[in-house]
Amino acid sequence: MAPEETAARLDTIAARVGALADDVRQGSAAARDLDEVAAMLARVKLDLFGPKRRAARGAGAKVKIRDFLLAHVDEVVTGAELKAIGGIQEWARRVRELRVEDGYDIVEVGDSAYRLRSAVPNRERAEQWALANTISNLPGSARSRIERYLEATVGTVVTRKQIDLVAKIAEGSRRVRELRDEHGWPILSHVDDPTLAPGEYRLLSTDPADRRDASQRMYPEDLRHRVFVRDAYTCQICRRDRAKAEAAGDLRFYLEVHHKVAIADDLSDVPVAARHDMDNLITLCHSDHLRESAALQERKRRARGA
């Protein structure tokens, strides 16, 4: 098509747009009119540039969507806009990739509406995702891959989605709980640390000396949560919470449930009602719990020798 003819068609479309603007002002605009204009523009684009070809590397739909979001930081953009910019039906998938894999802080603000809150991506999050993707391709069991991933990200927050990617199963978080409850790994969740959201985890240490007390698996999460909330997530001996501990340089601080009055050497022999009596439960940090348990055993030894 000759340039003059193409320009004339664009002039016609521009006139239609102007008429639509008048209709909008008068409250008589119709959706089909906008659809017709969009179809006319699509036809001009096809005539000018031919059928859509595979984008060159670095110039695909994801990049176009990213650049559009970057041009509208902290503004609400719609799925319709992103679909038009990307030129694909799977624009929502590209948004998820930008958020999850590339670390962009994109939030949903409505039905198919988004806001990019910062032009600077979270590099740590992106690197975690890349690491998860790498480990997911390693041989071995789901648990072994999760162990490797948690050890590689010790001290940082990881998400259920990252765990599931590494594990290649939908129950990756269950394996995390097994590592915590059955093997004593000091893994925090939102139950232990109110700064974590549901579905977020943090392995505090790989040192066997920091493993959780074996008795902790006797307390279900809802019970632990109620005890910690009641005690304001604060150790009732040293009076520290996680913020105070970290400020003092203790990055291995975490909380455990403890009986104020010992009720048995083996908790598994105690009826659940007695074991879960809130009036006899108290929040202690792991270090103070170890000391209290050691002191109790020493008192028992002395009593037996008396």
Rank of each mutant, 00 (worst) to 15 (best):
V44F: 14
V44Q: 14
V44C: 15
V44L: 09
K45T: 14
K45M: 13
K45F: 13
L46A: 15
L46D: 12
L46M: 13
L46G: 10
L46P: 06
D47Q: 11
D47F: 07
D47R: 04
L48T: 06
L48A: 11
L48C: 10
L48K: 08
F49Q: 09
F49P: 01
F49S: 02
F49N: 05
F49A: 02
G50A: 12
G50R: 06
G50M: 11
G50D: 02
P51M: 06
P51V: 00
K52I: 13
K52E: 15
K52N: 14
K52M: 15
K52C: 15
R53P: 11
R53Q: 15
R53E: 12
R53Y: 10
R53A: 15
R53W: 04
R54N: 10
R54M: 14
R54W: 11
R54D: 10
A55N: 12
A55S: 15
A55E: 02
A55Y: 01
A56E: 13
A56M: 05
R57F: 02
R57A: 08
G58C: 10
G58V: 09
G58N: 08
G58E: 05
A59S: 14
A59C: 11
A59M: 15
A59Y: 12
A59P: 04
A59E: 15
G60P: 06
G60W: 05
G60N: 09
G60I: 03
G60R: 04
G60D: 15
G60Q: 08
A61H: 08
A61N: 08
A61Y: 14
A61E: 11
V63H: 04
V63A: 03
V63P: 03
K64L: 15
K64D: 13
K64Y: 13
K64A: 15
I65C: 07
I65N: 03
I65T: 06
I65W: 06
R66A: 08
R66Y: 05
R66E: 01
R66F: 01
D67V: 07
D67Q: 13
D67G: 09
D67P: 09
F68V: 02
F68P: 01
F68T: 01
F68D: 04
L69F: 04
L69T: 03
L69K: 00
L69V: 01
L69I: 04
L69C: 05
L70Y: 03
L70N: 00
A71H: 00
A71R: 08
A71Y: 00
A71N: 07
A71E: 08
H72D: 09
H72V: 00
H72R: 12
H72K: 10
V73T: 14
V73S: 10
V73C: 12
V73N: 10
D74G: 11
D74Q: 10
D74V: 04
D74C: 07
E75D: 12
E75N: 07
E75F: 08
E75P: 06
E75L: 08
V76W: 01
V76E: 02
V76M: 02
V76K: 00
V76G: 00
V76Q: 02
V77T: 05
T78W: 07
T78K: 06
T78C: 09
T78A: 03
T78L: 02
T78G: 05
G79F: 01
G79V: 03
G79K: 05
G79I: 04
G79N: 05
G79H: 01
G79E: 06
